[in-house]
């Protein structure tokens, strides 16, 4: 029981069941190869129970490990299951030893990162993303855009009831608005186009933008996957093309 006080602070720090096991082993200064399954099962279950009491959101992985441990403990008590038990124990020990290496490797990386972060390059104040090369939307563009769109929706926090109703907008309106946007400028962020607008407008704009990209009227550029999309005028950008697109929806 004495170890619970300390665990409360560390509890959220486990990266998974192996991590929890390893920390328990270290805490009790045990050798991985010499663990007692029965003892470690009890300790593990207690911490898990404590986590549940604290109403932590516990991933299923932890329970899978708990049941594996309990199964092993049960097998260890049945003489004819001895061989199966030894096999499982060996596997668990192997996993723990592998995992121990990983934590050491992660520590190395953390140290490297820490050392690197004490040195600054020119223009280091720029964002992480802006340093990466722009990525022109390719075949998987629709997928990327769909994710982007989901992000936009989240950002706009558009809260509308789930009733399907006739939209207040038309494709004509939205496409014209996008064109109006480009009258004054050469590039725009998708977010700017839909800024302050409701969900339905975002949906219309998004599908319009997809259509316009497909027709080479606009070009979509991203600095990375799921990043904000930047729209540029495409090869076929013209008012004639606009009217052609609009006429499809009339």
């Amino acid at each position: 029981m004495e170890d619970f006080a300390n665990f409360e602070i560390e509890i959220q720090n486990f990266t998974g069941p192996l991590d929890l096991l390893l920390q328990l082993i270290r805490k009790h200064k045990l050798e991985i190869s010499e663990i007692s399954i029965s003892e470690i099962t009890d300790k593990y279950s207690r911490v898990l129970k404590k986590m549940q009491e604290m109403n932590l959101d516990i991933a299923g992985d932890y329970f899978v490990m708990a049941s594996t441990l309990m199964l092993m403990k049960a097998k260890s008590l049945i003489p004819r299951e001895k061989e199966a038990f030894e096999e499982m124990k060996e596997e668990l020990i192997f996993k723990l030893e592998e995992y121990e290496k990983i934590t050491a490797q992660a520590k190395i990386l953390a140290e490297k990162l820490n050392a690197r972060q004490k040195m600054f390059e020119r223009g280091f104040k720029e964002d992480f993303v802006s340093k990466e090369r722009p990525l022109v939307v390719a075949e998987n563009g629709a997928f990327i855009l769909a994710n982007l769109y989901a992000g936009v929706l989240r950002r706009l926090k558009a809260l509308e009831p789930d009733i399907i109703k006739k939209s207040k907008y038309t494709m004509k309106q939205v496409v014209s608005a996008i064109y109006d946007f480009f009258r004054r400028r050469k590039k725009a962020r998708f977010y700017e186009i839909v800024k302050g607008k409701d969900k339905s407008y975002v949906v219309y704009s998004f599908s319009s933008v997809l259509e316009l990209i497909k027709e080479n009227i606009l070009k979509g550029v991203q600095t990375s996957h799921f990043a904000e999309i930047i729209l540029l005028k495409g090869k076929k950008y013209s008012y004639k093309e606009r009217d052609r697109i609009i006429s499809r929806y009339e």
């Binding site: 720090n13 990266t15 998974g16 990983i102 934590t103 490797q105 992660a106 190395i108 990386l109 953390a110 990162l113 820490n114 972060q117 600054f120 280091f124 104040k125 992480f128």
Partner: peptide, 22 residues
């Protein structure tokens, strides 16, 4: 520059990155 560490990683993602790196 009122600037702290540029990137931060959770332990879980650092672990994952370590596995990939090694």
């Amino acid at each position: 520059h009122k600037r702290e560490s540029k990137h931060s990683f959770s332990r879980a993602s650092l672990e994952t990155l370590a596995i990939i790196a090694y």
